[in-house]
Amino acid sequence: MTASGTFGYGPEFSDFIDVTRLGAVIVKGTTLNYREGNPYPRMAETPSGMLNAVGLQNKGVNYFAEHIYPSIKGLNDNIIVNVSGSQIEDYVATAEKVAQLDGVTAIELNISCPNVKQGGMAFGVTACGAAEVTKAVRKVYPKTLIVKLSPNVTSISDIAKAVEAEGADSVSLINTILGMAIDAERRKPVLSTITGGLSGPAVKPVALRMVWQVAQAVQIPVIGLGGIMNWKDAVEFLLAGATAIQIGTANFIDPAVTVKIIDGINEYLDRNNFSSVQEIIGALEV
């Protein structure tokens, strides 16, 4: 799958890859109303990664449903909409609207965006908040409900268990890690928002650890993401217990990386005489 916010709506990459080959396309974070996002500068390159503070820039769910969805319907069998909000009512209203779109097979509930002032991550940092928003959306959304978890917490397993208990079908993790970059010469923060979300290979060991912990803690499928740059990284997440993986920041470095990773996983399976990817999920020998 492609991680939300790193693949646009999909057509941005159709010159480079056959988008139908992907397991799913998760489109960028969608909110009830239009959001302008944060002011520029929104990005800072860091060693082995980058910080972003986009702030959920999008035109709102109605615009998505009327103008974007018709043009991407059928781009992939699994179009998943990442839904975000700043209050529970917004999440619910957005999910209700998305539920009407036949071509959208799942929602990824974003309770972990570090770049919006109200809400977003606020729901994702407590088990109680995460449970509350999951419960509310579950009531109105009958299809597959994935909850995307924040790593900026003390115990991610507790939060995973809380959303599982409220009916989440799956959890995806990790969203970005809250970070900061400073321009020493100017003595100013690089990002307009001072802090932002760190992604890329720099976060991979943290993501892998959290996927491992959550896979031990819950029964529902875990989707792993965080700094996956190649097939080997992907296989590590599968071994740690992820049932599926998302590719995010790597799309910026190589727009064809997703299909290379699919091919690489298949070659790994063949080379090691596995007949199915199922055989390596959670197969870490400890």
């Binding site: 916010g5 790193t6 693949f7 646009g8 941005e12 990459f13 960028k28 996002g37 520029y40 929104r42 990005m43 390159e45 980058m50 972003n52 986009v54 820039q57 799309n251 910026f252 727009p255």
Partner: peptide, 11 residues
Amino acid sequence: ACGVGACLCCV
């Protein structure tokens, strides 16, 4: 970052 309109960083 991406150069293809996906990341919304260069706005």
